[in-house]
Structures are given as structure tokens and as C-alpha cells.
Simulated assay, not measured.
Amino acid sequence: MGFHRYVAIGDSFTEGVGDPDPTRPNGLRGWADRVAEALAAREPDFGYANLAIRGRKLAGILREQVEPALALEPDLVTVYAGANDIVRPKVDLDALAEQYDEAVGRLAASGARIVLFTAFDPGSGGIYAPIRGRFALYNEHVRSIADRHGATIADSWRVAQRLPYDVTASDPRLWDVDRMHLGPAGHQVTAMMVLDALGVEHDLEPLPLPDLPVLTRREKLRADAAWSRGYLAPWIQRRLTGRSSGDTVEPRFPTFGRVVSPGGE
């Protein structure tokens, strides 16, 4: 089945943060653009819209993006929402799932193919390890919602089982230097995962990974301290002041357009 009108909604994950491209809106490319490029290569009348805004929690995504998405009458919608809720000090995942379920039901009722994402497994180490159980419970809710509404799952939690590298999903080479967003290689893997889940043939290949540097304990502590100052502290400051990284950001592609791979036509 070919797709002609693709709308992506969500937060920074879908906006493309961590995958820089100065020639594109907001200076980003991201997995959704990569998916759209592959779909556009198959359909001459293909259109793509990306309504995602970084920093948005689930309620904001549903409130701000679902209606505009439906108004575009898409035949394919990808939805990623909830990650910014999971990492807050307190979250009611059951209530979150109820909101998500209602919104996915509305999107599915439009007749569009819906793709939902599980969250990546944060592993037993790193900054998200203490709330790994939240990620797992969230994923069970997502799977149940997908079952109820006939949505397709892009299974990030299990992506390590099919990574084209001999690495885990938490390998830093798949992630941006901020340790919170995917890097270009991670966005490429995600695009491949989505297209495979949709059963769409594509020619995407994994991006090469550099060798991991071997750090002494002192060098690692120094790198962790620099990351805390440069990324973690500003993130905490925004939480404390009620600000968001997306407060001044606009959707990258609010209406249908066509994107092509770099160097393509």
C-alpha cells in the first residue's frame, strides 16, 4: 500500500532534535523526514507535514496537534507522545494512557494508518535507569492502545534485537551529545524501523559508527560533569521555572510539502 499524505505529531523525538541539517526548517532533519523521503520516492504526489514541537508533554501534543493533523486528512499518522511526562518526578501513567487512547481512537476513526512508538529501553545504567519500570509500564499501555485501535507498533524497546550493529540501544553513538535525543545514526535506525513496520520497501542503510573512545575514570567523570553543566542543569532549570525548550518553536512543516533525500531531486 502506498501512502500519499503523511502527518507526524509529537515532541522533540519527532521534530528531529539531534539530527542537524541547516538547510531545513528549525535546522533539523530527523527520522520522520527520512521516512517521508523514502515514501516520496515511491509516490509522485506525496505530501508530508510535521507538527511536532520539542518539550511538549502528552496533553499538549494532543491538544495542539491532533485537530490540525485531522484537518489535513492524512492516510498515515505517526504519533510519539509521553516521554516528557515519564521523566517528570511524578506521573500518573494510567491517566496518561486514557488521554492517549481517546486521541488515538479519533485518529484511527479517520481511516488513516496509525503508527505508535514504544519507548526505548533505558537499560540498567545511565540517567534514566531509576525509572526504567515507568518506561516498561508506559510501553504496555501503548501496546494495548495499538491493539484496541488497529495501530502499527514501531517497537523502540525491542529495537536492540534488530539493530544493524553489534551494540545496544543505549550505545552513545546512536545518541546526541545531550544524551537525551537520538543522533543521526539513531534517527536513521528509527526511520528504518518505521518503514519496516509499515511493510514499505526502502534502501536505507545504517550509518557508520565511529569507534568508541576509551576514557579513564577521571576523563569520564570530567565528561559527566561537563554534560551536567551543559545539558542537565538547563533542563532542570526549565522544569523549575515552568519553561519549555519549545516555547518559541513553530512546527517545521505545518502544511503538506515534499521532502527529498540530500542530493536527491
Rank of each mutant, 00 (worst) to 15 (best):
P44T: 03
A136C: 10
A185E: 03
A151I: 02
V200W: 05
L195V: 08
P206K: 05
G18W: 06
R252H: 13
E140T: 12
L195P: 11
N139V: 01
D147N: 09
A191E: 01
W175D: 06
L51Y: 13
D45W: 03
I86H: 06
L39Y: 02
L58P: 04
R63I: 01
H181P: 02
D224S: 11
M180Y: 12
K57N: 10
A8Y: 00
D21W: 01
I131T: 10
R179A: 15
L221I: 06
E64P: 09
P210Q: 09
A169Y: 00
K220R: 15
Y6F: 15
R63F: 07
V87M: 04
S170M: 09
G133C: 02
I53D: 04
I86G: 10
R239W: 11
T14F: 07
D19H: 10
Q237F: 14
D247N: 12
Y80E: 12
P206Q: 05
F3M: 11
F135D: 05
T190I: 02
Q99R: 14
G18V: 13
V259H: 04
R218K: 12
G264Q: 09
I145M: 04
P44K: 06
P164L: 01
A112W: 00
P89A: 14
G264E: 14
T78I: 03
D101G: 02
G263E: 11
G183T: 05
R229Q: 15
P206S: 12
I53A: 11
R158P: 03
G105I: 09
L209D: 06
Y138K: 09
I131Y: 10
A112Y: 11
R258H: 12
G263T: 08
P130R: 04
Y100N: 06
L137E: 13
E37Q: 11
N50M: 10
D33P: 06
K220Q: 15
G263M: 04
G16R: 06
D247R: 11
L39H: 06
W157E: 00
T14L: 04
R258T: 09
V194H: 11
A136F: 14
E98H: 07
I236L: 14
T190E: 13
L209F: 07
